[in-house]
Simulated scan of single mutants.
Amino acid sequence: MHYQGNIIRPPSEADSIILQVTVGCSHNRCTFCGAYRDPEQKFQIKDEGIIDLDLEFATQYCRKLKTVFLADGDALVIPQQRLLNLFRRIRKELPWVRRISLYANCRSILKRSPNELAALKAAGLGRIYMGLESGCEQVLLEIKKGATAAEMLAAGRRVREAEIFLSVTCLLGIGGTVYSQQHAEDTAAVLSQMQPNQIAVLTLMLLDNTELGRAVHEGRFQLPDQIGLFQELRTMLARLADFRCQFQANHASNYFALAGRLPKDREHFLATIDQALAGTARLKPEWLRGL
């Protein structure tokens, strides 16, 4: 495979064919993200000839892998007809593949009409991963996410209406100590209206090569302590409406793991968080946490 720069994928795509069709992120302004900060690495849609070579490689060496993930940060930015042609090539050359997935930001989703998303689903798009991060308007503004809470909600609903599986990521701690509880409450409110198929909760890890990391060193941002992070998670879970979805807070960045289904497992999750708040839960040491 011809990979350029950092290749980022969701944990649930660990057993997928990772087909890099774009390099970097089309937005690349979020203050917390350091994945694509190499000044020499500009965002681009990869040449079709290189993608063809990668597909040829997959036909020979990836026959046991049943899903494809299109990297990098926002493959949905690829023009509609070109993306449809790519899906058709995947289905023709990798006929054993049962699902295609990709990251998509809010803007790229909203640029697609409902009919265009439906066409992508019919061509094989089975899952979209969208980074909500927070439902708090002020937090979204300060982290330079490039979308309002209302736009995030509209994008999520558009994916759901197209009957494409929607996985939404949220970040504990992204509001700092100033907006901690507001972040948790507003995120729960947006998720309750959006009703994604999957919620993935990560914990913010500060990186030196990011604007937010520099803000910490300069005293302009303070990450909540463990108790504050656990309280955010508890508030978020407790305030979620009763809709069916997968819920995961088992990323390497988290201090303890939650994984199951809502609303069925809510009380079990809350009990586990209460143990962490009481200091009786076994927590992951800092050296084992990662992105």
Rank of each mutant, 00 (worst) to 15 (best):
M1Q: 03
Y3C: 11
R9T: 11
R9L: 04
I17Y: 09
I17L: 03
I17R: 13
I17F: 05
I18C: 07
L19R: 15
Q20T: 03
T22M: 13
T22F: 03
C25E: 10
S26E: 03
N28K: 03
N28E: 05
C30M: 11
C30H: 07
F32W: 08
C33H: 11
C33Y: 12
Y36V: 03
Q41P: 01
F43E: 04
E48N: 09
I51C: 06
E56L: 15
F57K: 08
F57V: 08
A58G: 02
A58I: 01
T59P: 04
T59W: 01
Q60N: 10
C62E: 13
L65D: 14
L65W: 12
T67M: 07
V68T: 08
V68R: 12
V68P: 00
F69D: 06
F69M: 06
D72V: 00
G73W: 09
A75H: 07
V77A: 14
I78V: 12
Q81F: 02
L84E: 07
N85C: 04
R88Y: 13
I90G: 03
E93C: 06
L94K: 08
L94Q: 10
P95F: 09
W96E: 15
V97K: 12
V97E: 14
S101L: 13
L102E: 12
Y103I: 13
A104Q: 11
C106Y: 05
I109H: 08
R112L: 10
S113T: 15
L117Q: 06
A118T: 15
A122Q: 15
G126T: 06
I128K: 04
Y129N: 06
V139N: 14
L140A: 10
E142D: 15
E142C: 04
K144T: 02
K144C: 10
T148W: 01
T148Y: 06
A149L: 00
A154M: 04
R157Y: 00
I164E: 07
I164W: 03
C170E: 07
G176D: 08
T177N: 15
V178S: 01
S180A: 12
S180M: 02
D186S: 09
V190Y: 03
L191Q: 13
S192I: 02
Q193L: 10
Q193Y: 05
M194V: 01
M194W: 05
Q198H: 15
I199H: 00
T203G: 05
D208H: 09
L212Y: 02
G213F: 08
A215Y: 08
V216T: 07
H217A: 15
H217E: 15
E218T: 07
P224E: 05
F230W: 13
M236Y: 09
L240V: 14
D242N: 11
F243E: 10
F243H: 05
R244G: 00
Q246I: 13
A249L: 03
A249D: 05
N250R: 13
A252R: 14
N254D: 09
A257F: 11
A257T: 14
L258I: 09
L258E: 05
A259P: 00
R261M: 07
L262M: 09
P263H: 03
D265A: 12
D265E: 07
R266Q: 02
E267A: 12
H268Y: 05
I273Y: 08
I273S: 07
I273V: 14
I273C: 10
Q275I: 01
G279S: 11
G279F: 06
R282Q: 15
R282I: 14
P285H: 09
W287Y: 14
L291K: 12
